[in-house]
Design a protein around this nucleic acid. Structure first.
Lengths: 110, 110
DNA sequence: CGTGATTGCTACAGTTTCTGTAGCAATCTG
DNA sequence: CAGATTGCTACAGAAACTGTAGCAATCACG
């Protein structure tokens, strides 16, 4: 088990508990960005997510727990895992990456 | 050695090779976001980066190599590691996270 | 009722990734 | 020539992740 992400507790590699450090730590954990990305449109079930990203259930569960503890994702019995209001805000900050990544890929293959 | 990030090659957990998947894979690797963040203001030396984030030289070197291969970071002999133009563009997409993370932290501790 | 499907999630051995420490070759400094 | 700084490598031990199996709870159908 990895150190939890919680306010006031320092992130890995940071002595301060500054929010940006916590956030970068959280987002830098394997599959976290992908999970948020997969939930960008509609809610998904546990297995659905697992298959979509191709990770083991162990780690999918762990990451989902972290995302729930940090109020970015919630589990709705009727529809499945979905982004919270906070999670949607974060997603919107990320959406420009989609467009930018195309440009980036072009520059790489050039 | 982890699978390299290169255009046309699929990211971990993705069959497609779509740029956004490559980008999310790259950014989701440990320390990558932190490294970009640490370079946001001025260039830094290898050891300086290593100390700043508190990771082992092995992995710092590996991640820097990936960031160089993907043209986000470059090494200038005179000043040290720094963001490329492309890297600065990416950083600018990330800057809003800094402000947002404060709000997020407040909501968590509430 | 009872059988099967779906749900979120856990157990655990094996593999990959990362850490922590030591140290090297090359370059500059005095 | 000694000392400091540079980027980087080696390697054993520790931590994180995978892949597979499976469990308890809930729901649907007959």
């Amino acid at each position: 088990m990895v150190k939890p992400i919680l306010p006031g507790r320092p992130a890995r590699g940071s002595k301060s508990g500054r929010p940006i450090m916590l956030l970068l730590d959280l987002l830098g954990r394997r599959w976290v960005l992908r999970l948020i990305w997969e939930l960008r449109e509609e809610p998904k079930r546990f297995r659905e997510l697992q298959v979509a990203i191709g990770a083991s259930p162990t780690i999918v569960n762990e990451r989902l727990a972290e995302l729930r503890a940090t109020k970015l994702v919630e589990l709705d019995d009727a529809s499945g895992y979905r982004l919270t209001t906070l999670g949607k805000e974060l997603l919107h900050l990320f959406l420009p990456l989609n467009v930018w990544s195309e440009k980036w890929a072009n520059r790489l293959s050039a």
